[in-house]
Every structure is written in C-alpha cells, then in structure tokens.
C-alpha cells in the first residue's frame, strides 16, 4: 500500500475527526486507517485530542423508546441468528438466557460425572448457539475444576481464557484453559478475592498467552451463570 506522508496523514485524520472529510473520501480513509497501523494511530491521536471537546455540550435525556429499541436489537434471539449467519458471533448473547436449564444441566452433568465431593458452585458454559461446552465447579478448599465437554476446532494459535464476572466491576481472569476434552484443575482458594460474589463465567478467545490488556479482547466462545450448590 502506498504510504501517506506524515503531514497528509495528519491532515486527513484531522478532517475525518472534525467531520469535514466527506463522502467517498471519508469511507476510503476509514478503510485505509483500518488497514494501516500507523494511519490508525494518527486517527486515534486526533480522536483523543478533538473528541473531548464534545464535553462542552449539555446533556439531553433521550426518550425511553431509544433504549427499548436498542434492547430489542441486541436480544439473544436476533443476535444469535445474525451472528451465526455472519459466522462471527462476537458476544451478543445473554448470560441470563441459560437460566434454570443450565442449572439443571449442571447438576446432571456433575452427578453423572461420578464426582463425590460437593461443589460450592457450578456453572454450565454454553456457546451462543446454546451448546454446552464446559462445566465449571468450585471446590473447597482451593481448586476449580473445568470440565471440557466439547472442545473447539480452528483455534490454533489462540488461547482460551477463563473470566469471572463479579456482581459488579470489571471481569477478572482466572487464567488460560487448554482446548482439550477432560478436566483442568485451576488452583484458586475459595477465599480468593477473584471468586467472591461471582455472577457468571465466560471463556474468550485471546492471543497466545492470554489477553494483553488484562480485559477480554476476543470473541466470547461460551458463558454461563453460576449456580450455588452448597452454602459456603
């Protein structure tokens, strides 16, 4: 690709962010900035410099119908269809949708697994097309069992990272999980801050070695709500 001079890159990026770059030129620049990392960096620089100017505008409450429309457009049903059709199911499924079915399935899978030790909590992690992929259970005093029910194919050169969603705050990583059938034990104490007040668990696809930012960056492969089994 032909490289723009630094001045040209700045001039285009600035007018793109300002909004005066229009029509086909705007779309062309967008495509270039996606493909060329340097140009993308220049664009982000201008976005970071100019965009906070918008803070000067006094807020105006939008009508409630906007949120209702957004909610219906991100509903699990519609997102599942469009995502499978487009073959790129970036998140977009409700953690809640599994609900009771997941809990029952968890209990079933757990008991049929022949485990005798009682778990503190169990979660079935399902993919966006509602296929159960993993059963995760927390055990006293210090381990979490990740049972892979159905591994993924085509994830070579990527890592699977396990995340916990606390009741509030950012997701926390519990580390990487091998993409293979069978059990993985993760050493984590039941008193560890990362496993307190968990509402859900999820697996995201990350670069080898895990998310570079400490927060999930890749598509969510599966997720599920946590069902308490035994009072801690």
């Amino acid at each position: 690709m032909r490289r723009l001079s630094s001045d040209a890159a700045h001039a285009l990026a600035a007018e793109y962010v300002l909004g005066t770059l229009r029509g086909r030129a705007r779309h062309r620049f967008e495509a270039l900035a996606r493909a060329d990392r340097h140009l993308g960096d220049v664009l982000r620089l201008w976005e970071e410099e100019l965009t906070p100017w918008a803070e000067r505008i006094a807020p105006i409450e939008p009508p409630a119908r906007v949120w209702h429309a957004i909610e219906s457009r991100i509903s699990p049903a519609s997102s599942r269809v469009s995502r499978l059709a487009s073959d790129s199911f970036w998140r977009g499924f409700a953690l809640i949708s599994g609900g009771l079915a997941s809990v029952l399935l968890a209990a079933f899978l757990w008991l049929s697994g022949g485990a005798r030790d009682e778990a503190l909590f169990v979660a079935v992690l399902s993919s966006p097309d509602a296929v159960p992929r993993m059963v995760v259970s927390m055990h006293e005093p210090d381990f979490m069992r990740v049972r892979m029910v159905k591994p993924w194919s085509g994830t070579e050169g990527k890592s699977l990272e396990l995340w916990v969603l606390p009741a509030s705050g950012a997701p926390r990583s519990l580390g990487l999980v091998p993409n293979a059938s069978g059990d993985t034990l993760i050493r984590v104490a039941t008193t560890d801050a990362r496993v307190q007040g968990i509402s859900a668990l999820a697996i995201s696809l990350e670069p080898v070695g895990g998310s570079p930012s400490g927060l999930p960056t890749g598509p969510v492969l599966c997720s599920g709500v946590v069902a308490p089994v035994k009072k801690a």
């Binding site: 998140r91 499924f93 953690l95 809640i96 969603l165 705050g169 950012a170 997701p171 999820a202």
Partner: peptide, 13 residues
C-alpha cells in the same frame, strides 16, 4: 465506564 464496557464485551446486559 471502562468496567461496564468490559462486562458488556462478555455479554452482561
């Protein structure tokens, strides 16, 4: 806000 975005990324409605 960054936390809320990160949770949204994991499908937290």
């Amino acid at each position: 806000l960054a936390q809320l975005i990160a949770r949204s990324a994991l499908g937290d409605r």
